[in-house]
């Protein structure tokens, strides 16, 4: 059974489905009508280690037609350089809107139906996903692409603390998306 990366972060009866197979993830991604990707500040640490994670996110966003939301200035600077389209909104403010079934998204065309999280401190992502698990379950599914198992998501990757393996896994998702 999947275990939280931070061992004390035990949620309760409802836990994320563990997705080990990129093909299965692709199926869920394809099912989404209005996906959105929320990027946290920790992405930069991964970029600094030489993994072009923002390039992968750009590809993912393009392939599934997902909007990107971020609030870290350094990420935004990087995304501009990489010509990635994005929205600026602090994650807590965005969370408040994601949980609201009546919010119509940035472009007013309707609430998102899949929120994809990547690049946050473990506890921070854990808590945001907890809110959505309890208060947005009727209209929103969540997918954690973090390198660690996030039990409060609807779907989560397993603990994959070796960044290289995790990066390869993400890359496989992009390949499978075709």
């Amino acid at each position: 059974m999947a275990e939280s990366w931070q061992k004390a972060e035990v949620p309760g009866p409802i836990k994320a489905s563990l997705l080990n197979n990129p093909k299965v993830i692709v199926e869920y991604l394809k099912k989404a009508n209005r996906p959105v990707i929320i990027i946290g500040d920790k992405i930069l640490e991964i970029e600094k280690e030489g993994y072009k994670i923002l390039d992968l996110i750009k590809k993912l966003s393009n392939k599934i037609n997902a909007e990107i939301v971020a609030s870290s200035p350094k990420i935004i600077e990087e995304m501009r350089e990489k010509n990635i389209k994005f929205r600026i909104m602090p994650s807590i403010e965005f969370l408040d809107r994601l949980k609201d079934p009546n919010w119509n998204g940035f472009n007013g065309k309707g609430q998102y139906d899949l929120a994809i999280f990547i690049g946050f401190p473990y506890y921070y992502c854990w808590l945001m996903l907890s809110n959505l698990k309890h208060f947005a379950y009727n209209h929103l599914k969540t997918l954690s692409l973090e390198p660690y198992y996030q039990p409060n998501a609807t779907y989560s990757l397993p603990n994959n603390p070796l960044i290289e393996a995790w990066f390869k896994f993400l890359n496989n998702i992009i390949i499978e998306l075709k």
């Binding site: 035990v10 949620p11 309760g12 009866p13 409802i14 807590i92 969370l95 945001m128 809110n131 309890h134």
Partner: peptide
Amino acid sequence: PLYMPFCDL
């Protein structure tokens, strides 16, 4: 209030 529960129980 925006709640982010620490525990489901």
